[in-house]
Amino acid sequence: EAHAAIDTFTKYLDIDEDFATVLVEEGFSTLEELAYVPMKELLEIEGLDEPTVEALRERAKNALATIAQ
C-alpha cells in the first residue's frame, strides 16, 4: 500500500519520491487526505511551510477533480 501511495503522489502531485515517502511515513496514503486534512496537520511535517502546503493541497484537489472526470 505504501508503494502505491508513493506512486500516486509522485504522479499526481508532481513531487519526487523522497517527498512522497515522507508524506506516507507521516501517515498520508490518499490524495483525499492531503486535499482535506486540516492544514495544521501538514504544517507539523518538518520542512513544510504554508506556501508549500497550500500548493500541495491545491494539486491534490486538482488531481481528484481530474480523476473524477
Rank of each mutant, 00 (worst) to 15 (best):
L64Y: 02
L34R: 00
A65E: 09
E46Y: 12
E41R: 15
P51M: 11
F28W: 07
L42F: 07
A65G: 07
R57K: 12
E32D: 07
V22A: 10
A4G: 08
E25A: 15
N62F: 10
D7W: 12
L34W: 02
E50Q: 11
G47S: 07
E46S: 14
E46L: 15
A20M: 02
A4C: 08
D7T: 11
A20G: 02
E33A: 12
L23R: 00
Y12V: 05
L42V: 05
F19S: 04
L43T: 05
K11S: 05
L13I: 03
I67C: 05
F19A: 05
E33R: 11
F28V: 05
E44F: 10
M39N: 07
P38L: 08
L64F: 03
D49P: 04
L42Q: 03
L34I: 15
A68R: 10
A60D: 01
A20Q: 01
E25H: 14
A63T: 04
E44T: 13
A2K: 14
D14Q: 12
V22N: 06
E41Y: 14
L31V: 04
S29R: 15
T30E: 03
D16I: 04
F9Y: 03
A35Q: 04
A68W: 07
D16M: 06
E25Q: 15
S29I: 11
P38K: 07
A20P: 01
E32V: 08
A68D: 08
V24T: 06
A4D: 10
D18Y: 14
E54A: 14
S29D: 06
I6L: 06
A65C: 08
A68Y: 06
A60Q: 01
D16Y: 04
K40C: 07
T10H: 05
L13A: 01
R57V: 09
R59H: 05
Q69I: 09
T52N: 05
R59N: 06
F28L: 05
G27P: 01
F9T: 00
I67P: 03
F19M: 12
N62E: 11
Y36V: 09
M39L: 12
N62K: 15
D14L: 14
T30K: 07
P38I: 06
I67K: 06
L43I: 07
E33V: 08
I45V: 07
A55H: 08
Q69L: 07
E32K: 07
T10I: 14
T66P: 03
E1D: 12
L13Y: 01
A63W: 04
M39S: 09
V37E: 06
E41H: 13
T52W: 08
I6F: 04
E58D: 08
L31T: 01
T30I: 03
E54P: 01
L56V: 04
V22G: 04
K11G: 03
E17H: 12
L34S: 00
E58Y: 08
E58K: 15
D18S: 13
V22Q: 12
T30A: 05
T21I: 12
T21P: 00
I45Y: 03
Q69N: 11
A55Q: 09
T30Y: 04
F9W: 02
T8P: 02
E33T: 07
F9A: 00
A35L: 14
Y36D: 07
E50L: 14
P38E: 11
L13D: 01
P38R: 06
Y12E: 04
L42K: 04
N62C: 10
A68Q: 12
L34H: 00
E32S: 07
A60F: 02
A5E: 03
F9C: 02
Y12C: 05
Y12K: 02
K40S: 13
L23T: 00
A4N: 11
L43Q: 05
T52S: 08
E32R: 09
F9S: 00
E58N: 12
A63E: 03
E44R: 15
K40Q: 13
L34Y: 01
E50F: 12
A35H: 02
D49I: 04
D7R: 14
A68I: 09
E26R: 15
T66N: 11
A60E: 01
P51V: 13
A20E: 00
L48T: 05
L56M: 06
L42A: 05
T66L: 15
A2T: 11
D49S: 07
Q69S: 11
V24F: 13
F19I: 09
K61G: 04
L64G: 01
I67H: 06
E50M: 13
L23P: 00
I6N: 02
P38T: 11
T8K: 09
E33F: 06
M39C: 06
D49E: 06
E44A: 15
A65T: 08
T21H: 10
A68L: 09
G47A: 06
L42W: 06
Y36L: 09
R57S: 05
K61Q: 09
S29T: 15
A2H: 13
E32G: 06
S29Y: 15
H3A: 13
R59L: 07
A65D: 09
A5S: 09
E33H: 12
T30W: 03
E46D: 11
P51I: 12
K61W: 06
I45E: 01
D7F: 12
F28S: 00
A35W: 05
L13E: 01
D7Y: 13
A35V: 14
A5N: 06
R59C: 05
L64R: 02
V37F: 09
E25T: 14
A4H: 12
L56G: 00
D16K: 07
I67N: 05
F9H: 00
E25P: 01
E26W: 15
H3N: 10
A20F: 02
T8R: 13
Y36Q: 09
D14P: 02
D14N: 13
L42P: 03
S29W: 15
E41D: 11
I15R: 00
E26D: 05
L42E: 02
A60S: 04
H3L: 14
G27A: 02
I6M: 06
P38W: 06
N62D: 08
L43F: 06
A63P: 00
E50Y: 13
F28D: 00
E25S: 15
T8S: 07
E50V: 14
A63N: 02
E46V: 13
V22C: 07
K11A: 06
A55F: 09
I15Y: 01
K40I: 11
I6C: 04
E44V: 12
V53H: 02
L48C: 03
N62M: 13
K11M: 09
E46K: 13
T66R: 11
E41T: 14
D7H: 15
K40L: 09
E50H: 09
E1T: 12
F9M: 03
E25D: 10
L43Y: 07
T10L: 11
L23E: 00
L42Y: 04
L64P: 01
L13T: 02
E1N: 13
A20S: 03
E54W: 08
E26C: 10
E46C: 08
A55V: 10
L48Y: 05
E44Y: 10
A35S: 06
D7I: 14
T8Q: 07
E32A: 10
L64S: 02
T8V: 12
L64Q: 02
E46W: 12
P51K: 14
L23M: 03
L42R: 04
R59I: 04
E41I: 14
L31A: 00
R57Y: 03
A55T: 09
E41C: 14
V53A: 15
E58M: 12
A65L: 12
A63Q: 04
R57F: 03
T21W: 15
L56C: 02
D14V: 06
G47K: 05
T21M: 14
Q69F: 03
